[in-house]
Amino acid sequence: MGVNGEAASLFSELLLCEYPTRPMQFAIAGSIRYPISTVIARAPGDIFGKHAERIVLGLGLHELRAVADADQVFTQYKILLEEILSKTSSVLYLLTIPRQALPECVAALEAFNEKVCAMENGDRVHVLDFASHLEDFEKDQLQRGKFARSLYDSNHLPTSLCHVLLGLFIARRIYNTQKETENGF
């Protein structure tokens, strides 16, 4: 979600702008880049002890870059999810990873995203398919012609436009999911 958690910070600011009187607290671990195995080890203090109502997880890209094996990365990812689900009452939002973030391993990335999407249960686990949203956005941008702005730079790092797009996407999807849950849809 950005080298320094830019998209997560934008998301929190967007929610505060929309709901200035709502009590909210954010714990953003953007500038600290842990592999999933370290997140699992640190979960008791960093996740469980926070009593979070909602948790957004954008994990797996670092590991996919290192091993390019969707099954191996997802095994660790699923351990973390099961640990969070068993030890909290938090609602989880899982982000898919756009192929533009890892064009050299598209097959592994797509396999990983499919496994993440399969975790959706409509109750406590919701998938935020940012990969598809980004592709739709890029198609719309292509209609503008040669002046379309890039979402990733030449090193496959997200641009500020990508951070804003992700922040807006998370805010809108969580709000819509929460409304659907409250209305029993």
Rank of each mutant, 00 (worst) to 15 (best):
Ser37Tyr: 05
Gln100Ser: 12
Ala148His: 08
Leu95Thr: 02
Leu151Tyr: 08
Arg172Tyr: 09
Ala29Tyr: 15
Val164Asn: 09
Tyr175Leu: 14
Gln72Asp: 00
Ala7Pro: 05
Asn183Met: 14
Val73Glu: 01
Cys105Trp: 09
Gly45Ala: 12
Ala43Ile: 03
His156Asp: 12
Gly5Phe: 08
Val56Ser: 02
Leu166Ile: 06
Met1Ala: 15
Leu157Ile: 13
Leu134Cys: 05
Gly2Tyr: 05
Leu142Lys: 10
Asp136Met: 07
Val39Glu: 03
Arg173Ala: 12
Lys87Phe: 00
Lys78Tyr: 02
Asp153Phe: 04
Phe185Ile: 14
Pro158Lys: 08
Glu83Thr: 04
Gln143Asn: 07
Arg33Met: 14
Gly2Lys: 06
Ala70His: 01
Gln25His: 15
Asn121Gln: 06
Phe137Trp: 11
Ala41Tyr: 08
Gly122Lys: 02
Asn176Trp: 13
Lys146Phe: 14
Gly58Ile: 04
Lys146Leu: 15
Asn4Ser: 13
Gln143Trp: 02
Gln72Ile: 01
Leu85Ile: 01
His133Arg: 01
Asn155His: 15
Pro98Asn: 07
Asn155Tyr: 15
Lys87Glu: 00
Glu182Asn: 11
Gly45Ile: 09
Gly60Ile: 03
Ala148Tyr: 04
Phe26Thr: 11
Val116Glu: 02
Leu92Arg: 02
Cys162Thr: 11
Leu134Asp: 01
Ile36Gln: 03
Leu157Tyr: 12
Ser160Trp: 11
Leu14Glu: 06
Leu165Tyr: 07
Met1Lys: 13
Ile170Ala: 05
Ala41Gly: 13
Leu165Trp: 05
Leu16Phe: 08
Thr96Arg: 03
Val164Arg: 11
Lys179His: 08
Ala148Trp: 04
Gln143Pro: 01
Asn183Arg: 14
Gln72Phe: 00
Leu157Ala: 14
Ala41Pro: 12
Thr75Pro: 05
Asn155Gln: 15
Glu182Ser: 12
Asp123His: 00
Leu134Tyr: 00
Asp71Asn: 11
Leu94Phe: 02
Phe26Arg: 11
Phe48Val: 04
Pro44Tyr: 07
Ser37Asp: 11
Ala101Glu: 04
Glu104Asp: 15
Val164His: 09
Val116Leu: 00
Lys139Thr: 03
Ile79Gln: 08
Ala41Ile: 10
Phe147Ser: 10
Tyr77His: 07
Val125Ile: 06
Leu64Cys: 02
Glu182His: 10
Ala41Leu: 13
Phe147Arg: 13
Ser160Gln: 14
Asn4Met: 13
Asp46Ile: 10
Val56Ile: 06
Pro103Thr: 12
Glu13Lys: 15
Ile97Glu: 04
Pro98Asp: 05
Leu14Trp: 07
Ala171Met: 11
Leu94Ser: 04
Thr75Trp: 05
Ala7Cys: 10
